[in-house]
């Protein structure tokens, strides 16, 4: 019905002013408008609502309830009680501390190694094979990576310990040692993400004008000097972005801790909580300790608030850096 009317109107309009209305209709046909867009958006909109937007609101709501296995339907509203409990929960603060240690070691080693790798790739080779090999750990499942290193670091049959022993030192049970387990996990994560991080930095380096290096070489500057005076300052915005993205990822480490921490036969997060990162503690509360969903959701909310703060700080930082460079 409407289509017919539209056509008639167009005919009239055509008679009066030949060009513009026709153009208009073409444009409308191109652009679509909500009626068309709705159908194209429908599946993703459903996914967004059901698995992102509503859960976000619901998680915050749950964090104010006493939702657990013992209090099923409807969970009692207890206000900020979960958050108060969190504040005085030593285990929570322990897990925050463990996470911070892990993140610091992981991001520190990973970024430095990736930077070295990226510079070497930039100055030595653009080989696709080299980049492909460096990316292999990144495409492997975290659980698998955890498994490989669980074995390599095993106190009795692990390769690393056999090397250590052949050098005359005594073997160590890295993943079941309360002082070494966090560095060991940071090392595993570093192994997994260094190549990927290096490729991101390498991509960033491609935006640095080549003639700067040529000029540097003519001046007789060494590679080290050029790295300090050209690469590093110009890479700063990319480096900052990459570091923040890795930082956010590192805070959310779960798979490696779930599979490798405590070593084979040891408890997850062990020994005695030495490797209980925040994700593990949230998981334990939600799915192991009688489904304390309310408490776990409160923790997850705090974590999300913190990560959002980091993200926004990153955007600030980037904008500041961008104007610096422009």
């Amino acid at each position: 019905m409407t289509a017919g009317q539209l056509g008639a109107n167009d005919l009239v309009a055509d008679a009066a002013v030949p060009k513009p209305p026709k153009r208009n209709r073409e444009e409308r046909a191109l652009d679509g408008g909500w009626k068309v867009a709705f159908w194209f958006l429908l599946p993703s909109l459903l996914g967004f609502l059901i698995f992102y937007l509503i859960p976000t609101i619901r998680a915050i709501r749950i964090s104010f309830t006493e939702d657990s296995l013992t209090s099923r339907n409807p969970a009692e509203w207890i206000g900020a009680e979960n958050y108060r409990e969190l504040w005085s929960d030593d285990r929570f603060w322990d897990s925050v501390w463990v996470t911070l240690k892990f993140v610091a070691m992981n991001i520190g080693s990973q970024t430095i190694l990736a930077l070295i790798l990226a510079v070497m790739m930039d100055r030595l080779t653009r080989s696709l094979i080299v980049r492909g090999i460096l990316l292999v750990p990144w495409v492997l499942p975290n659980v698998l990576v955890a498994m490989l290193w669980l074995f390599l670091l095993d106190p009795r049959v692990g390769f690393v310990n056999s090397v250590i022993e052949s050098l005359g030192f005594s073997a160590s049970s890295f993943l079941n040692d309360s002082t070494l387990v966090v560095p060991a996990m940071a090392f595993i994560n570093t192994w997994k993400f260094t190549g990927y991080t290096a490729l991101l930095l390498f991509a960033g380096m491609q935006t640095i004008p080549r003639n700067l290096y040529e000029a540097g070489a003519l001046d007789g500057s060494s590679e080290m000097t050029m790295f300090r005076t050209i690469t590093l300052p110009l890479l700063k915005p990319v480096l900052a972005l990459v570091m923040v993205v890795s930082l956010i990822g590192s805070f959310q480490m779960f798979d490696v801790a779930q599979t490798a921490s405590g070593g084979l036969g040891g408890e997850t997060g062990g020994p005695s909580g030495a490797s209980r990162v925040i994700y593990i503690y949230i998981y334990e509360n939600a799915f192991l300790f009688r489904n304390k969903f309310g408490y776990a959701a409160a923790m997850a909310t705090v974590l999300m608030g913190f990560l959002m703060f980091v993200t926004l700080a990153q955007l600030r930082l980037l904008r500041a850096n961008e104007s610096d460079l422009a």
Binding site: I50, F51, Y52, I54, P55, T56, R58, A59, I62, Q252, F254, Y279, I282, Y283, A286, F293, A296, A297, A300, T301, L303, M304, L307, M308, T311
Partner: peptide, 14 residues
């Protein structure tokens, strides 16, 4: 920006 663990619980309940 939503960390997976944050939507994990409501998604699980859903």
């Amino acid at each position: 920006m939503v960390p997976p663990i944050f939507s994990l619980i409501p998604n699980f309940l859903f």
